[in-house]
């Protein structure tokens, strides 16, 4: 149990350093993303070993659903007071999701075809 706590402290420190760097250098990034990149590069360079954070991180990611519950309730409450045509939002969400699927798929396939032609 205390090992899990120590591992979590390490993750939390990455977040704190990330947040501090963002506010100090006035970076246009969120502190949590910078914290993630910091942890990632520390793992890559071996400053932090995988075993030092793995357990806590996996537990955290496994139960990420728990963290979404309060914002979803907030969304339901907010949606009650939102006076706008919901179908418009539906069209935007559906349209851009389709765009992402089709264009990502096509560009990957195009890249693969182009690569194969180069290799020939």
């Amino acid at each position: 149990m205390h090992r899990l706590f120590l591992q979590f402290t390490l993750i939390f420190s990455s977040l704190a350093v990330g947040n501090a760097m963002v506010s100090f250098f006035r970076l246009p990034l969120s502190g949590s993303i910078l914290g993630m990149l910091l942890l990632f590069f520390s793992l890559l360079t071996g400053i932090i070993q995988m075993e030092w954070v793995e357990k806590a991180a996996n537990l955290h990611l496994q139960h990420m659903t728990l963290l979404f519950i309060p914002p979803v309730i907030g969304a339901l409450v907010y949606f009650h007071s939102l006076h706008m045509k919901i179908w418009k939002l539906g069209v935007i969400i559906a349209g851009s999701s389709l765009c992402i699927i089709i264009i990502t798929g096509f560009s990957v396939e195009l890249y693969e075809k182009w690569k194969r032609r180069c290799n020939r």
Binding site: I11, S32, I33, M36, L43, E54, L61, M64, L67
Partner: peptide
Amino acid sequence: LMQTAIVSLAIPLF
């Protein structure tokens, strides 16, 4: 905890 969850994404990325 949502922020530390983002930091934890470093593990799958690695």
